[in-house]
Design a protein around this nucleic acid. Sequence first.
DNA 1: TCCCATCACTTAAAGGCTTTAAGTATTTGC
DNA 2: GCAAATACTTAAAGCCTTTAAGTGATGGGA
Lengths: 197, 197
Amino acid sequence: MTRERLTAQRLTRAAAELADEIGFANVTVSALARAFAVKPAALYSHVRDLQDLRVRVAALALAELADRAASALAGRAGKDALVAFAGAYRGYAKEHPGRYAAMQIELDGIDPRGEAAQAARRHAEMTRAILRGYRLAEPDQTDAVRMLHGTFHGFVSLEIAGGFRHTPRLVDASWSRTLDALHAVLTDWPPPEAGPR
Amino acid sequence: MTRERLTAQRLTRAAAELADEIGFANVTVSALARAFAVKPAALYSHVRDLQDLRVRVAALALAELADRAASALAGRAGKDALVAFAGAYRGYAKEHPGRYAAMQIELDGIDPRGEAAQAARRHAEMTRAILRGYRLAEPDQTDAVRMLHGTFHGFVSLEIAGGFRHTPRLVDASWSRTLDALHAVLTDWPPPEAGPR
DNA sequence: TCCCATCACTTAAAGGCTTTAAGTATTTGC
DNA sequence: GCAAATACTTAAAGCCTTTAAGTGATGGGA
């Protein structure tokens, strides 16, 4: 019974699977060891500790999402690109809620040369690429990047958390109209202090 | 030494304090018991279990935020109301990161007649009140409520998580411009499929 | 081919967490 | 002033993380 040897990569992938199945918060060294029919202590040769494992899952998810977003973006521009990128984001989050949750961990003390930080940079670059279609100059571009990121993340995480389930309106429809609204406001980005009224 | 008796309310309040200090994820029955110089088991007369404690903190936070938002909204309308509401939301989240995190727990299996669900309903009502200034009919109103909620939550939680710290631009400025953009798009809410280009 | 070192995992153990059950002491109501 | 309820402690089981030491298989060198 020469079972497959453990590696950090295999552990990370399995942890990501587990996260989608039982929730990111329930991904523990013990649970992962059980999945490999191995004692918990065995994992510590491959992964520093639980925190390390979780950061690895976050990095995996970030990279996967960046890949998917890049594919979605390929060959598109303008509103098309916006919708495709947003769709990739939302689709990934809904297919992989555990991985998505992993991405939300504090990325503060993370190695800026690590895979996670690199994937995060790819995301930012893609968002800026979308905005190129709208001809926004700095600092408007940065503001718009932040607004887009915030809107995507906020909408999707409220949707996953069930925050929209109390109103019958289809969430897909609201998502679509939210993208229409974002497109409109990017097309005609208002100057500062557009004035009340 | 007649120390103050424990109650669910006092525990909840202390847990909220603790959450802001050490992070919501680190609020445990043990830590809370320590704060009261009491054995962990003592808490179980007042609170069903850890999950119950956490839901109580979430409900407290939701109610506090609803109060603050209501004050901010009083006597305002139009963009003024939007900015005040959003400011209350962001201010609360930044002052009380632990409580804010508590609000993000799955509210799925929650008692719909409980304090938490009630506070959530107050939030939705206030958001709709803001939108009254923009004369949106259903289903646009629901879509806009979802977009606003999502944008506020997403922006603020990315900010707290440190997602904006890699660009020098002041976050306050981006927040302000994001509100300008929301105001603009609410003022001139685009019809469905506004068409690419 | 044999041996030895390394590797990959197990065993063992300490310490923290949640949660229940049973015990004790204090307070409360009559 | 006494009995009963209350409020907390003690005790214990079970699960978690993490480190250290142990074991057996593997594979490279002679």
